[in-house]
Each structure stands twice: as structure tokens, then as C-alpha cells.
Nucleic acid binder design. Sequence first.
DNA 1: GGACGGGATTAGACGCATCTAATTCATAAG
DNA 2: CTTATGAATTAGATGCGTCTAATCCCGTCC
Lengths: 232, 232
Amino acid sequence: MLSDVMEDYLKAIYVIEEESGPPVATSSIAERVEKTAPTVTSMLDTLAERGLVTREKYEGAELTAEGRTVAIEVLRHHRLLETYLAERLDYSWDEVHEEADALEHHISEAFERRVADVLGEPAADPHGDPIPSPDLEPPGGEATVPLSACEAGDRVVVARVSDRDDADLAYLDDAGVTPGTTVAVVDVAPFGMVTVAVDDGEQSLPESVAESIHVTVADTPEPDSAETGAGA
Amino acid sequence: MLSDVMEDYLKAIYVIEEESGPPVATSSIAERVEKTAPTVTSMLDTLAERGLVTREKYEGAELTAEGRTVAIEVLRHHRLLETYLAERLDYSWDEVHEEADALEHHISEAFERRVADVLGEPAADPHGDPIPSPDLEPPGGEATVPLSACEAGDRVVVARVSDRDDADLAYLDDAGVTPGTTVAVVDVAPFGMVTVAVDDGEQSLPESVAESIHVTVADTPEPDSAETGAGA
DNA sequence: GGACGGGATTAGACGCATCTAATTCATAAG
DNA sequence: CTTATGAATTAGATGCGTCTAATCCCGTCC
Ligand SMILES: [Mn+2]
Ligand SMILES: [Mn+2]
Ligand SMILES: [Mn+2]
Ligand SMILES: [Mn+2]
């Protein structure tokens, strides 16, 4: 049996691998799980002994197939719970993350199945993150870019929003920036502040927020008159 | 913060106090939480240091007001969860206990409130056990007796059924013996086997099962012809 | 190539919940 | 009053997850 702490480490390693690929540095895990580096080293040894990660000293860690399956299952629990809380228990999208983080380790397989059933096996959680299917294969995330990497004139569709900052989420909900929304990038200021146009007006978002919004680009503007003409 | 283990001990002490009053013996707690006696002694010390129980060596333990409030809150979580699982997630009454036992320690106050809201602040769980109200005062359990203490001829209403044996619950559900059902006691055999009449026929229940069914007596038979005429 | 600096690991410790074995206590029986 | 019995506690140990302090390793910069 795996402890809930181990499950959190595996989940952390999985999402870091997704973002920047293996091997995963001790320090990046430490940051995500909010533990010290020696604590992480020691837990990685434990996980390696159990065959859930492989690792080479000073090189970082990588999930094994088994470790990845566990991580995906925890992620499925987390995202199903978030979706259920939002749809059936009147939670707002900035409240679901914390509750799901606690419950994800304690629900049975029966609970998972029944929640998925009443929701109709949903494909994405309230933040737009894909919910792994019951076979626990890695969910195919379509390619997205952070809003902070877009340029003025782009028309983009919001795909996912990081669920990790409640205040940001509450603000974005209010601003009408949620998964599925189409927004037009009006301006990208020097320090990363992004101004977008949505239905109810323009919103300026600080860089930290723009980084946590992932979008798919619907339209890049035709190059303006006086621009360099290179590259389609 | 209290660990989930501590919460389980407090819950155990509470229900034992309800059954047989304080002080509660170390061994009876050990039996309920499935730990050894020294483990319980040590945990009782910890709980006493935190002001949740009082105790005198070799005498047993007793909940303080604070300890009782914690126990009642855990019990509220447990029974609300059982009710929710049965009503909204298609669990049968023999499946809810285990799941609720795991989740009861991990739900937030917001979750508790929302579950209670969507259910309409229910008064009893699927086994007939009273759900403590949000003020966490001890729920008023009306006086009941175990079915095993009844006599042939009694007409009784099932009040509560212990939720601790899944197999018994599945059997009783099938037999049509659930809280609210009126049954007639047909016979009490020497070794405690109780035969009752319900809508769909007669059922014979072994003593262990009859002990776990608590009832209120609706009717005692008028004393038969040749009986001792004493007492109304 | 040698020193530096930052990230990683090792060393050593702690608190919690748990166990088994040994001891102590309360009391019921003689 | 003494002893036997069973329950409770103390003693001592273990595994886990965590920490701080000390040490180690690797790539960079002179
Ligand atoms: Mn978690
Ligand atoms: Mn999410
Ligand atoms: Mn429990
Ligand atoms: Mn119950």
C-alpha cells in the first residue's frame, strides 16, 4: 500500500515530467510538494526501492511505467473530484482544488467509478485539465501555449488555467476568462502584462497570471503593412 | 490539528460511552479500534495531554466536553457521508460504512455543509443512526432495545441496525428488515435465535444478528390466559 | 587546471503511532 | 489475610516521514 504522501510525490513528478520532461530535479519536486531537498532525496530512495521511479544520483528521477500509472490514477481521482464538487455540490472553480487534494487519496475504486458514472465520464475538469480515462493511459494533451507567449493581435481559445492559485481563479472567473472562451490579445506590455479583449470588455493580466493560462491559437494577424515580410 | 487516528479513538470512546457509560476501559477501546492495549494506553495519554479525555490510571477514560464535540463532529461526518453515498451515488447500505470511515477525516467544513444542504439536513443515516446536528450537541437517541431482548408476541419497529457487518446488512436488506419496518416477534429460541414475521414471510435471525438490531416496542401482547397476572 | 558556488546527498535526530515482552495493579477467591 | 488471575501500564524497539547541519559532486569561470 502507498501512503498519501507517496502518491503526492508521484503526482508531482508526473506533472513536472509533462511540463519539462524527465529527468526531474530534486529541487523541482521539493518546491512542488513543499518539502526540503533531503526529505525529497529520501523519499525518492523509497520510491525507487518500490520500483515506482528510477534515478541516478545527482541526475534526477523518472517515473517507471508503474509509477506513472499510480500518478495518473491519482490525477484521475483529483480531476474527477474537482468536477464532481463543481457540478454536484455547488463549489466554485477556485474552491475545488484544495478539497480534491485531500480526498484524492482516500476514495475507493467504487467511489471513483460511481462519480465518473453520474458525471458521464467527463473529459476535462473545471480548469480545462484533461481527466485521465479509466484505463490510466496518459491523457493526450493537445499542444497549448501560455498566454504570456502570445502576441498582440492573436485570437486565442483558453484551454486550461492552472488550478493552484485560488485568488487568480476567482478573479479570472469574474473577468470571464474560463476554458473555452475565445479572447483577443490586445497588447503585451514590456514586463509581461497582457491585455485581452473578452465579451465584457478589456482585461489586463499580470505576467504571473498570463503564464498560468494555456491557450490554443485560433488566428495570428496578417502581418501589418510596415513589418518584416519573412515567414508565413 | 488532530490526526485521523486520534479522531477514530475519540469516536470509539464516544460510542462506547453511549452504550455503557463512562469510564471506558482500555480493553474495550482496543477492541473497537483494533489495536493492542499498550497502544491504547499510550494514545489515551496523548489525548489526555491535549485535554480531550480525562483518565485515572487503571480506571479507564472519559471524554471531556471538547473531546466529545470532536467525536460528535466525526460522527456527523460519517453519517452524512453514508447518507449521501446511499442517496446520490447509488451505494447500498452495506457498502457505505467503509467508504465513510475513510472519508470522514478528510472532508472540510464546507463539504460537510454542502452535503447537508443538498440532502436537506437529514436526521438519520441509512442504518437509522441519528445524524448529529451542526451545533454538535449529542443527538437525542430515543430509547431502544435489542431485538434479542424481545419476547414472542411483541410487535416492534426497527429503529437502528449496526452498520459494522456488511454481510448481515446485505442479508437484512434482502429480508426486508430495515429501519422503519414493523415486525412481529414470532419466537425466541433457546440459543437466542429470533424468528420474526415481516411482509414477505417469516425470517429467522441468529442471536448475533438480533443483537445488532435495535427496536422500539409498539405492542406487547396482552398476557395469555394462564400467565401470571402481575403488573400492567 | 584549480577554485567556486549551488544543488544533491549523507549524517544524525525527532515525533508519531505502533508493536512485543516484562511488570505492576486491582480484585475476587480461598 | 494471602494469593491467583487478568487487565493495565511501563520498557524498549521499530518504521515512517520529516527536519537541520554537514558534506559531497558537478559544471562554470578565471
Ligand atoms: Mn494530495
Ligand atoms: Mn484542476
Ligand atoms: Mn475512521
Ligand atoms: Mn451508519
